[in-house]
């Protein structure tokens, strides 16, 4: 009987196939995904059967923060109903988000100074800082100081939703001669879009005014209607009668 000789095999594992797979996966993720936009408040949108997709460009998103649930399971309503606005311009470089945001800020400051005694000053570097922020929501009087801060300090301020200066001030005002800050912002966006209309970009103004696809209201599913109503009523007052509500898709069995 001869001894069976155990052949020593090399433990090297060939990783080429593995590498192929990971590269494929990586390519897939890179191509299909869009980056999560930084939002000051996370909300769970209600589900709906509507299959219409949210456009990625030429969109003004109005975020209404929901209540936070504390340790005892109670709803903390002091952070509820804060309003934030995000502006996404065209993919086209002339009317890019940065450009539109900068113009909107200048327009908003101008109209704020027309209606308020305490004038605010804004420097070009602050405008540049503003154009990089995806979603903003702060009292206009606090904005210049906020924009001079470092990005990490800005985040720190936006984290405290119960701070009275966070969130765009909104009330039941229906008199556009003395607009509230939400109305100032929305009108500024409208005016900028209208001016762009003359310069060759029709789509933004179109989306805002004619089809109603340009404004999306995003709110938490458990937020009471009385809070949402503030925003809807203000939009009505501003004659933005057509707009969309952001939802998540659900299928309905027939």
């Amino acid at each position: 009987m001869g001894k069976v000789k155990i052949k020593r095999k090399s433990t090297l594992i060939d990783m080429t196939a593995m590498s192929d797979v990971t590269v494929l996966l990586l390519t897939f993720f890179m191509l299909t995904s869009t980056f999560l936009q930084k939002e000051p408040a996370t909300v769970i949108t209600p589900s709906s059967v509507s299959e219409k997709k949210v456009p990625t460009s030429n969109l003004v998103t109005i975020l209404v923060s929901g209540a936070e649930i504390d340790k005892d399971g109670a709803r903390k309503t002091d952070v509820e109903g804060k309003v934030f606005i995000s502006i996404a311009g065209d993919v086209d470089s002339t009317f890019s988000s940065e450009n539109v945001r900068a113009q909107v800020l200048q327009e908003a400051v101008r109209s704020y100074n027309e209606t308020h005694k305490n004038k605010i000053q804004i420097t070009p570097s602050q405008v540049a800082a503003f154009s990089k922020i995806n979603m903003f929501g702060l009292k206009l009087s606090e904005l210049p100081a906020f924009l001079s801060l470092e990005a990490s300090d800005q985040d720190e301020i936006m984290k405290h939703l119960n701070d009275p200066k966070v969130g765009i001030p909104i009330n039941d005002n229906r008199d556009l001669a003395s607009p509230n800050e939400f109305q100032i912002w929305m009108r500024a966006i409208y005016n900028v879009a209208r001016d762009m209309d003359g310069q060759g970009s029709q789509t933004f103004f179109d989306a805002l005014q004619r089809s109603g696809e340009g404004i999306a209201v995003k709110a938490d599913k458990d937020t009471p209607y009385s809070t949402i109503h503030h925003v809807l009523d203000n939009l009505q007052t501003l004659k933005f009668n057509k707009f969309s509500l952001m939802t998540a898709l659900t299928t309905e069995d027939e």
Binding site: T32, K52, A216
Partner: peptide
């Protein structure tokens, strides 16, 4: 860092105030 789910929208038209 990314989101795959794209939100949907529901268009509504409100009467003028």
């Amino acid at each position: 860092c990314t989101t795959m789910i794209k939100s949907q929208t529901l268009s509504i038209a409100l009467p003028s105030n």
